[in-house]
Simulated assay, not measured.
Amino acid sequence: MKLSNSATVLLAAVFLTPAYSAPMAMQSRGSMATSTSHSGDGTFYQPALGACGKKNTSHDLIVAVSHAVFDSYPGANPSNPNKNPICGKKLRATYGTKSVVVTVEDRCVGCATGDLDFTSTGFGKLASLDKGRIHAVRWQWV
């Protein structure tokens, strides 16, 4: 089969042009550790033995960060999450005019990158537990 000059040029353009994809929603490795402000949804859970290796209760002011943030934190070791340098790091979460300082002690598998999963005590400092999920929670490392 013989191709015309325009068909040859078109095929060359298709196969020789590099493919570009849309930007990834997740930030690059370590960027959540160094950037100043983040946002996402806030939820709450009943803690027990967390990914950082500590037992906590719903009365503790702790938080689980998304698996993406936890696993990509600089110095994270997937074979031993208890030694992740994010463990024990504090952050200030703000919702509307209310804020709370919480300590990272866990990893949230069901959370999107900027989401936070609080204890009921931590969540209660921001909103009524009846809400269950709050949107546009702003947070930063302290």
Rank of each mutant, 00 (worst) to 15 (best):
M24S: 08
K98N: 15
D130V: 06
T57L: 04
G124I: 03
S58I: 03
S35V: 11
P85W: 02
C108Y: 06
T119V: 03
H38N: 10
A136T: 15
G42C: 12
G50S: 04
D71M: 10
F118S: 02
I62C: 01
V69H: 01
F70P: 00
A7S: 11
T43I: 15
A12I: 05
V101I: 05
A112P: 02
T34Q: 09
F70V: 06
L11E: 07
K125L: 07
M32H: 04
F44T: 01
G132W: 15
R138C: 04
A136K: 13
I86V: 15
Y45T: 12
R133F: 13
V9R: 14
K98I: 03
A25E: 07
P78G: 08
K89D: 03
S39N: 11
K90M: 11
Y20A: 14
S66N: 09
F118G: 02
G110K: 09
A127K: 09
S120K: 10
E105R: 04
L3D: 12
L3W: 13
L91S: 06
S6P: 00
V101R: 08
L129P: 03
Q27N: 07
S66Q: 06
A64V: 07
G124D: 09
L11V: 12
G75H: 05
L16T: 13
F70A: 04
A51H: 00
L116T: 10
S72R: 13
Y95F: 15
F44D: 01
T8S: 11
K90A: 10
V104K: 00
P74G: 05
D117K: 13
S72K: 10
K2C: 10
T119F: 08
V104S: 00
D130H: 14
T121V: 05
G75N: 05
D60S: 02
R133S: 09
K98H: 15
T57W: 03
K83L: 00
M24E: 06
A127M: 10
R92P: 01
V101A: 09
T119G: 03
L91T: 08
R29V: 14
P81W: 00
S35L: 14
G88L: 03
M1L: 12
P78S: 12
S72W: 06
H38W: 03
S31A: 14
P74I: 06
P74T: 07
K90E: 14
L10T: 15
V63Q: 00
A13T: 15
V100H: 02
C111T: 09
G50E: 01
C108G: 10
V69R: 02
Y45D: 07
V102E: 00
P23A: 14
Y45Q: 08
D41L: 11
R29F: 07
G110F: 08
V69D: 01
V137P: 00
